[in-house]
Simulated scan of single mutants.
Amino acid sequence: MVNQVEPRLIKPLFDELQKEKFVTLATIDHETGGPNVRAISWVLAKNDCIIYFAVDNRSKILENISRNNQVVINLIANESVYSIQGVAAIKVDRLPDVPLKLALVEVSINEVRDVMFYGSKIISEVQYDKTYDKKAAERLDRQVMEAMKKA
């Protein structure tokens, strides 16, 4: 069976990306030319062709994107693993109404590929816990997600 390839997000993936979600982001390292993978969680599907994510202004991710705008977002959802390939651009240097200096990055999707190996499915998705002040984390997460929705 050939893994499914789509030009945009399917509904279950779009729905998953309406809230904070653990994903990995692959960029091309501007110093080594090799792959660079980071875990991020402030991710939002603006529509079925655009994904936003927020990262600290000092993140190496931003320098990598400014040198090579090709990215891959790896998402575990819908009982599978998806590789979302696209072109990234810094949309906003500093998200308003957020206490941290976060940049907003827009990814225009080129391809969404189901990359789960044959004959299997995900039965448990990644869970994580914030290790700092829970109320502060919830407030910050809410501020970031609301700012991304307004962008």
Rank of each mutant, 00 (worst) to 15 (best):
Y128F: 14
Q4V: 12
S66R: 15
N64Q: 05
G33P: 14
Q4D: 04
V144R: 04
S108F: 04
M116W: 04
D114M: 04
A45I: 07
G33R: 07
L100V: 03
I109R: 03
L13F: 07
V81R: 01
D56M: 11
I122H: 02
E111Q: 12
N64Y: 09
F53R: 01
P7T: 06
D15G: 06
R142Y: 14
A39I: 11
K149V: 09
C49T: 15
W42H: 11
I65S: 05
L140V: 05
R113K: 14
T32R: 06
R8Q: 11
D129V: 15
E79D: 12
V55S: 06
S80P: 13
V98W: 02
P12D: 00
I50P: 13
L102G: 02
V71Q: 01
C49A: 10
K121D: 04
Y52N: 06
K60P: 15
V72I: 11
A45G: 08
D29H: 09
T24M: 05
E106I: 06
K130S: 09
V37Q: 00
E16G: 04
V81L: 03
A103V: 03
A136Y: 11
V115M: 01
R8I: 07
V72R: 02
P7I: 02
E146H: 13
K19D: 07
E79G: 06
Q143L: 14
W42M: 08
V72F: 01
Q85L: 08
G86R: 03
P96D: 00
K101H: 10
V105Q: 00
T32C: 06
Y82F: 14
E6F: 15
D56E: 10
I65V: 12
N69S: 13
N68M: 08
K149A: 13
K134Q: 14
A39S: 11
E111L: 10
V105N: 00
A137I: 03
R38G: 08
E111M: 09
D133N: 15
V72W: 00
N64M: 07
S59D: 04
I40P: 11
Y118W: 12
Q4C: 05
E31K: 15
S120T: 15
A103Q: 00
P96M: 00
T27C: 07
L102H: 05
A151G: 12
D48E: 09
R113I: 01
F53Y: 11
I123R: 05
G86L: 04
D129T: 15
F14I: 02
I61M: 07
V23T: 05
K135Y: 14
V105H: 02
F53W: 04
V115F: 01
V81F: 02
M148K: 06
I84W: 04
K130M: 10
F14V: 03
K46F: 11
I65D: 03
K134G: 13
K46N: 06
L44P: 14
D114A: 04
S59V: 08
M1C: 11
A137F: 09
K21S: 12
L17K: 03
I50A: 02
N74D: 06
S120N: 12
D29C: 11
F117W: 10
K60L: 13
K21V: 08
V81M: 04
G86C: 07
P96R: 01
E6H: 14
L25F: 08
Q4E: 09
K121Y: 12
M148C: 07
T131K: 08
V112F: 03
I28Y: 05
S83T: 02
